[in-house]
Amino acid sequence: MSASQSAVRSRAEAVKVSRTFDWLILFTLFFVVLGGYHIHYMLTGGDWDFWTDWKDRRLWVTVAPIVSITFPAAVQACLWWRYRLPFGAVVCILGLLLGEWINRYLNFWGWTYFPVNFCFPSNLMPGAIVLDAVLLLTGSMTVTAVIGGMAWGLLFYPGNWPIIAPLHVPVEYNGMMMTLADLQGYHYVRTGTPEYIRMVEKGTLRTFGKDVAPVSAFFSAFVSILIYFLWHFFGQWFASTKFVEAA
């Protein structure tokens, strides 16, 4: 067989090779994203995602969506503009959550015995589905950034509320009122994360009374829009083939 001849001899063979290639790429993409995104999220979200007593109504709501919209935006840029595939955000979150669950179960629970109900990851899937859906339905990066990015920030807290609400039930403990999540943080000793790091409710947001979470979510949504633009361009640049094209 010369170099100019095809490696496949029939359409059926071509389809088979193409599908094999699909699964290879998807498998590789999944684990590369899992590794890179996981490290990124642990470094930037870190404790806000690790512990239930850090999943507060103000900073967690703000920080987690902003630092997590990065990879979904970049992978969307690559998969959409080069393949018209609208699952960039979801594949990222599937990878991230799998990595996080492995980490929380094997490391946090298996090595250091923190109960899983204290150190489970945040749920980012609802925002990812909507982000992908907006991209497909509009085909526009700008609209996806504005509508999808907004949804990413706004859906985060309600998407997690069914999981964390039971831990916000109050308890009286030795004469003080706290939530069950606070009590978890107090009971399950961490030497490096003292209580004072959690004192985040400062500033003028208190003028909104108890409705702090929606305000934080809106702020987070606005910043997520900006971060989406930035990382979308990173993705486009990263997915360019001009670096490997022949002169």
């Binding site: 609400a165 916000h168 039930v169 109050p170 606070d182």
Partner: peptide, 8 residues
């Protein structure tokens, strides 16, 4: 009945 996280 739920309350915000307590710190202080």
């Amino acid at each position: 009945i739920t309350t915000p996280l307590q710190a202080g």
